[in-house]
Design a protein around this nucleic acid. Structure first.
Lengths: 415, 415
DNA sequence: ATGGTTATCCAAAAAAGTTTCATAATGGGC
DNA sequence: GCCCATTATGAAACTTTTTTGGATAACCAT
């Protein structure tokens, strides 16, 4: 083992060249099939390459490309694809080339959303297509053990629906409320039962791979960037209004943690004001919230208010607009600081259509030097779980490109 | 020319290996000498390596290291260094190895700060040590042509003091108020004469290298990170209080632009409130500001107020605290969003010591979930120009590591 | 002055990639 | 239905770069 100093960069013997070429071929074919993202049906025929095309695209000679492809087929990452249909206008003469594609079925990834009132698990193939999902409600007072048991059940069920074996899991990530440290331990959370517990450990013991843990709002904005309303917008702000109130942002495609992991969080003072506003909002559910203590009041789902607002009921509409305005006031500093291309509004409020987004838009118009687009999320309640899938895929990609000849990742390597 | 597809990554023939090894050696030796940053005198003897040490650190064999080093000495990037002093405790036997170091005198970089009332030019060697500086006042109403002429004069003077030839300039950057596009054209500025002009073109025609243009606050926070109060803090917020009022932030060591280039700017509404507060502040200079129009009022230097506050004059002190509090209110959203490790207070207000920083600190304590450290900048008025130097060095490093065998950079390549 | 120790230099071998050429497979033309 | 043009595939010879191992050179300490 050579000691590689800081800033020494990568260097090496001729075998390093092979690693480079293998990674380049893998990147090409992986990008070709993953670009479709969540759009399942659209197999564009651009996901397969002939060996000659690979050689040209990567910039290596044909024999080398063949060698690399054979090794990767041997490993199971690449597979022979169906021959390309005779495209009109294209040369039809000559021996047909075999086509090679990244094998998106070579494994799967798991994404979990540990929310306050539910646990959601998604299973996706390596192209990011969701092939299994399960969703279980969780009681507000459930313990950390009960919650992780529910998560395990959800994962098992999602795997069953996806027709996959746990051994095929190549990466996993979990999204949850609160601030999680790098090792997965939850430091602060609106689920007090979870504080002090390590989600990474709770789920990691059950899965064959380490579990990456992230804040649910960060996961959601990543999902919106990947396959939602912020597609292609590397700078975005995500505002979540529903049973959970939260925010996050994306800069250059990543969601910065900040020094304490609290970047983009709604600050305590604004949070208290928002709780008051939330009380007014949910009072339209008909439940007598005025006397409820804070914690129980926050457990009430404002969905009926959003639905009423969408139906056009004036009072409900006003309540949604008022809350959205209050929420925009609490997060305008976030938007001004990030200067995003788009602001995505997600959570249960999306059932009210553009009502909340309009209110947020009009406030931002008053305070921003440049107004961002304000759009409603198409991902709904799955955003955080989808973000966990995206995080798991990123994890998988890293190990894939850096070490394509070690299937999976052992706990030892991850240490 | 091979077409390298998106995500295809780098690949190549055996000569690619050489490039890799050359870049690795260069990185090692460059990092060794540049780590000292602005601390000029401290040559730590760790800036030079023997060939054997290079081979070990980079992870290549000795003959290869020797080959690479010879090629780089030939190119002029590396140079034989003074033999290492006989360190006690170290092996003193055997043939002494020649020591090699990055030649920080192989060229120089230029950094310019085009402020509203002054033009400042710095010249630094490739280790980032400032070896020449010049500073000229500029009239408030000066035209873009006059300002760029002043900049050229300042650069020429700084080069003369540094005893360097313009042909030795390997990279250059300019910092200025306002929002500059990627091509260097100023879109919005508090110097209306500069709007619509391209600083890159105005100075680039005069220099042998393209000029990178950046906002002065972004440059300043980079400088604080590089060689100031935010050293080692990759997430930081910079607040500037003086003749110029502004802010910026750093996340993971970079200052994000945002979609319109306005990320981290003080929003218009807060800006108007700050102008009122500024009027109160500078009224303590004794100048009758109450009747002055906005533009002329902003031209008044509040330095005398800061000095009076530092001397302990109660009214001046109160004025500084009041303004600092108002300023903190306008930028608290920035701090909350970034969740920085440190908030750096810079600009003329630093002569008042901790008075402003204390006021800012106490407000942040009320609104932040996690309080950052609040410290006063040691860079003073040079922060933006130092940041320009840092940007120029980054530019230089990119070309150096990607193409070490083409000295300098032609306009054609930069296109 | 001399021996030990370390740096430097040189030659042969190994690894990976490229070029060149022969062979295989298919579709269209006669 | 057969043949040929066309393109993919596969194997051999050559180039570049690195590594390994040994021979030589330079300096410090005795």
């Amino acid at each position: 083992m050579s000691v590689k100093g800081v800033g020494a960069g990568h260097a090496g013997d001729p075998s390093a060249l092979r690693k480079l070429n293998v990674a380049a071929v893998l990147r090409l074919l992986y990008a070709a099939q993953a670009s479709g993202a969540a759009g399942a049906g659209e197999v564009t025929a651009a996901d397969r390459y002939t060996v000659t095309e690979i050689a040209q695209a990567v910039g290596i000679s044909r024999p080398t490309a063949e060698d690399v492809v054979d090794a990767l087929v041997e490993q199971g990452w690449l597979a022979a694809a169906a021959p390309r249909p005779a495209t009109p206008g294209r040369r039809s003469a000559g021996r047909p080339a075999r086509t090679i594609a990244f094998d998106s079925q070579a494994g799967c990834v798991v994404g979990v959303d540990l929310a306050r009132h539910s646990v959601r698990a998604l299973v996706a193939d390596l192209a990011g297509r969701v092939i299994g999902r399960a969703d279980y409600p969780v009681a507000d007072g459930a313990s950390a053990a009960e919650r992780s048991a529910a998560a395990r059940t959800a994962i098992t069920e999602a795997l069953r629906l996806a027709d996959r074996d746990p051994a095929q899991i190549l990466a996993a990530a979990a999204a949850t409320v609160g601030i999680a440290r790098a090792d997965g331990q939850v430091v602060r959370s609106t689920i007090p039962q979870m504080e002090g517990h390590s989600i990474g450990e709770l789920l990691g013991a059950f899965l064959p791979v380490p579990v990456r843990v992230a804040n649910d709002m960060r996961a959601a904005v990543l999902a919106e960037y990947w396959a939602g309303a912020a597609a292609g917008c590397s700078s975005a702000v995500y505002l979540h209004v529903g049973r959970r109130i939260g925010s996050s942002y994306l800069i250059d495609g990543v969601s910065p943690l900040g020094h304490h992991g609290a970047a983009g969080e709604i600050p305590p003072e604004s949070g208290r004001q928002l709780v008051d506003a939330y009380r007014k909002l949910v009072s339209f559910t008909g439940v007598g919230v005025d006397t409820l203590p804070r914690d129980e009041m926050l457990g009430i789902d404002p969905l009926t208010v959003f639905e009423a607002a969408q139906r056009g009921e004036t009072d409900a509409r006003r309540a949604v607009v008022d809350f959205a305005d209050e929420f925009a006031a609490a997060t305008e500093g976030l938007v001004i600081t990030v200067d995003p291309e788009v602001v995505v509004v997600g959570g249960g409020v999306v059932v009210a259509g553009d009502i909340a987004a309009d209110a947020i838009r009009s406030r931002l118009a008053r305070v921003c030097m440049f107004e961002p687009r304000v759009v409603v999320s198409p991902l709904g309640e799955s955003a955080a779980a989808m973000g966990a899938i995206r995080l798991a895929l990123t994890d998988f990609e890293e190990t894939l490109f850096s070490n394509p000849f070690a299937r999976g990742r052992t706990a030892e390597e991850a240490g």
